[in-house]
Design a protein around this nucleic acid. Structure first.
Lengths: 142, 142
DNA sequence: TTTACTGCAAACCGTTTGCAGTTCC
DNA sequence: GGAACTGCAAACGGTTTGCAGTAAA
């Protein structure tokens, strides 16, 4: 089991204010893909005065520290993903935009020879698209 | 060889104005990944009065018609890709944000069993990240 | 002639920033 | 005490929209 975001942060020299604590707490658990606004809303439930700017500042800082991943697989606002422990891919519902984490496949794709064009390739990103069960059943959860 | 965007459009019942023609002409050839603003600039070289709104309207229409692909693999503005004929992946330089098309690998990744979560999976998107030759050589083409 | 495309400007959304005040260590 | 975090509000970049005018078929 991974230690969660808040526990990890305690071990770093991270100046801990009520605002920052609350943002970190919102990400309890993995498999969460929140937008900045969702984070702001959830944070305000616990700390009503917290400002949007502070939420954005904190999210950017956590991304820079490597404690959150920016996920930009659907259009609209970026999502933030606390699951930084294990490389993983994403499965996206093209209708309701739900996102699920998917363990990295045993044989991740590699770039065909002759297509590398001299690039030094370091990472691969894989996103599966489709319909979630509810949307596939026509329950129009758009 | 693929017919190019402009020829394809001629065969469709697409009301052809000078503005729309010029936008289509900008996408001559494949392996082009332009932002809306780049399209606007190039279009203005040929037709100085063309407005930003018309460029955006036209791009959105071409995307809806399936004649352009939206590519959103780097942050900043969306790119538009006329290479709709062959499924392909993208190779991105993380420093200068150059994008290259890559033929789809012989065995594209499939989602691991047990991770499908009831989704009906229809497509996979693969993006390779790395450094282009110039950036890898430290020529700081940021 | 009619339908629908164009340009302008204002609105929009998500995000960043400058700054004065406050808090954490 | 001092560095640095906070909130506010304004600015920002990219994109969309309403509307009056114009042009394609």
């Amino acid at each position: 089991m991974e230690t969660d975001l808040l526990s990890r942060l305690r071990t770093l020299n991270w100046r801990l204010s009520p605002q920052r604590r609350v943002v970190a707490e919102v990400f309890a658990g993995d498999h969460v893909h929140l937008t900045a606004e969702e984070v702001h809303d959830l944070a305000r439930d616990r700390l009503p005065e917290i400002s949007r700017a502070t939420v954005y500042n904190t999210l950017n800082e956590l991304v820079a520290m490597g404690e959150l991943l920016e996920v930009d697989v659907v259009d609209g606002p970026k999502r933030y993903d606390p699951n930084v422990g294990a490389e993983h891919d994403h499965l996206v519902c093209d209708k309701c935009h739900a996102i699920r984490d998917v363990p990295r496949s045993e044989r991740p794709p590699t770039i065909p020879h002759g297509a590398r064009a001299g690039y030094r390739v370091t990472t691969v990103e894989v996103t599966y698209h489709g319909l979630c069960p509810a949307c596939a059943a026509g329950h129009s959860e758009s």
